[in-house]
């Protein structure tokens, strides 16, 4: 495995991620994300996996998309969203290789991933970013729109589509095997 280096390279990247742009990202780079991505965590992943196992169509098209592992607190009146920081990515590891093989290109979360996920990132030219855990108030300021796409009954765990502007992340795992933790 290539050792990731923390450096001071800062990049501005559009979402959804372009395949070549994703492949250019390296562990340790600071990235500001702008554009749209999905939000999904444990329960939503479980439901998507059930559909995949049954050979049914998913309610969202994940090809080329980025998923932010997050469950926001409720928005106050007039606000787009509540507190909105990353949750621990490792809990999604069971489902992630399948989703990456189906075309998922980016993930935003925090914490370690399994070797299976890191392999799937390499195999698919994908990328895993970390956002600062426990900074949900700060990160919410970079979210300019949010709507529930499906699974509203899951409350904070519903799948959302959000728009972000200069959302600060750091590349943790890249497709050439760089891994920061």
């Amino acid at each position: 495995m290539v050792e990731g280096n923390i450096n001071t390279i800062e990049k501005h990247v559009s979402l959804p991620l372009d395949a070549d742009v994703a492949k250019d990202l390296r562990a340790g780079e600071y990235v500001y994300l702008t554009g749209e991505m999905y939000v999904a965590r444990d329960a939503a992943h479980g439901r998507l996996m059930d559909l995949i196992n049954k050979g049914e169509k998913l309610p969202i098209n994940i090809e080329g998309e980025t998923i932010y592992y997050m469950g926001p607190s409720p928005a106050r009146e007039g606000r787009v969203i509540g507190s909105a920081g990353p949750t621990t990515a490792g809990r999604m590891d069971k489902y992630t290789p399948t989703l990456l093989d189906m075309g998922l290109r980016g993930m935003v979360g925090k914490g370690k991933r399994t070797p299976e996920v890191l392999d799937a990132i390499k195999r698919n030219g994908a990328v895993y970013f970390a956002a600062v855990g426990g900074a949900g108030a700060l990160l919410s300021k970079c979210i300019t729109s949010s709507e529930i796409v499906c699974y509203e009954d899951l409350g904070a765990e519903a799948i959302r589509r959000i728009t972000v502007e200069n959302f600060p992340v750091i590349v943790v795992a890249d497709h050439i095997g760089g891994y920061l933790y």
């Binding site: 997050m70 509540g82 507190s83 920081g85 600062v132 426990g134 949900g136 108030a137 700060l138």
Partner: peptide, 20 residues
């Protein structure tokens, strides 16, 4: 960033962390 986060949480009444 955590210092900024604490300030925003207090000033704008946004929970410090979404996991309340």
């Amino acid at each position: 960033q955590l210092q900024d986060n604490l300030r925003i949480a207090h000033d704008e009444m946004i929970p410090i962390c979404q996991d309340t």
